[in-house]
Design a protein around this nucleic acid. Structure first.
Lengths: 216, 216
DNA sequence: CGAATTTTCCATCAAATGATGGAAACATTG
DNA sequence: CAATGTTTCCATCATTTGATGGAAAATTCG
């Protein structure tokens, strides 16, 4: 029997999926406590009890959102790995950053939710305990910093985390930084890519394995 | 006549200051909506109405916290500039990163609050509008990327923002990443410094003015 | 000391928020 | 169609949360 989340992902027009989609946005913008079930229901245009009928407690809906986002990220990362595998390091970084930046800019709630999970605490213990794969080892391998997903040393993991944090923070902070710099979306996106490459390529280009096969 | 914030900063033992200090911590951990005035009052060990007596609305207290943190940061940045001015770029970065990382690790609520302001929205418009100097141009100048605080180009500002985001995200995410890596505080702090330098020094070391005078 | 001022706490309110029961609307199926 | 199951909404609750009035306690000052 499929979970509610699986049902929602299978049928994107269903009420479950529509609620989940809006919940992603609202939780992403306001955080767990800042978002209310009423805000989400209003966004969908339904009564609040319909929301509870489909997803149960607020916490369960939030958990579904996190799992949903994780699944999207997993799929996207596999896609990127497919594209860049076998290329030299600098090129691989260049392409990955382009693809992931574009992807996240279209779905900023992903970066928001990831950052909220890293940095913010919740008054609800059960939510804090919601531990999930963080893809750190996968990205380390896919980006060519290590030959295998297993036993990735911590200093490499940290570099991966740094790359991800940098990207997420630029995506999440779009509104803030654009108004700080007084620029439009397109210009900001270009600036983000340029800055990411300026910072990351010098550090990583001479590092890691080049070419080679797919990540085992 | 001094503002409540000025009074609190002048007398750190006063009730105003004690409340402000706890408010920093609680707002930093849980964000604006996640923090309640009752949580803060309980932390101080006072009745909630005493809190309201000293600081008025929740929003006003939050505003005071933001201004307080900004003032601390301003002071610290000036101190760092004093120490590193005139040194070559790589050395300047090396020293600044050490000092600022140590400083923020002692006061993680600063990083938390800064990140919450960048990324999260608030249901209260008046809080979102709370615009403050962000030191970006000052840091650009102090770190030697530009010769003067004025007319710093956007691509340079972005690099500064990147450095700050990276540092803040490591500080804010301490709990999360330490449990992800399974390491102790000291080891994590060392790893953070090492990673910051690994990433930032290659990109910036060959850039910007070296030596020279203080930032005008 | 005693009056005036400041600070603190108790009791309480109104609004917001998470959550639910039950009736109505809608859909499915024999 | 009628019976059954599913979905949606209205009304309502209990709790939490921001906020305040007023009495009591503490402090200041002539």
């Amino acid at each position: 029997m499929p979970t509610p989340l699986e049902k929602a992902r299978k049928d994107p027009d269903s009420m479950k999926a529509r609620i989940l989609a809006k919940a992603r946005q609202v939780f992403g913008q306001y955080g767990y406590h800042g978002a209310t079930t009423r805000m989400i229901a209003d966004e969908v245009g339904i009564d609040i009890s319909t929301l509870y009928y489909h997803w149960g407690e607020k916490r369960d809906l939030y958990e579904a959102v996190i799992l949903d986002v994780n699944e999207d990220l997993r799929i996207k990362l596999a896609e990127v790995e497919d594209i860049v595998h076998g290329r030299p390091m600098a090129e691989r970084l260049d392409i990955s950053l382009d693809i992931m930046t574009d992807y996240l800019f279209e779905r900023p709630e992903i970066s928001n939710l990831v950052l909220f999970r890293y940095f913010g605490k919740t008054r609800d213990e059960a939510i804090m305990d919601l531990s999930l794969p963080e893809f750190v080892s996968d990205i380390a391998c896919a980006s060519g910093l290590v030959p295998t997903r297993k036993n990735v040393p911590n200093h490499i993991k940290m570099r991966v985390v740094a790359m991800m944090n940098l990207m997420h923070s630029f995506v999440s902070g779009e509104d803030f930084f654009r108004s700080l710099f007084g620029i439009e979306r397109d210009e900001y996106l270009a600036l983000v890519k340029q800055t990411l490459k300026f910072i990351l390529i010098p550090a990583f280009a001479t590092d890691g394995r080049n070419g080679g096969t797919r990540c085992p």
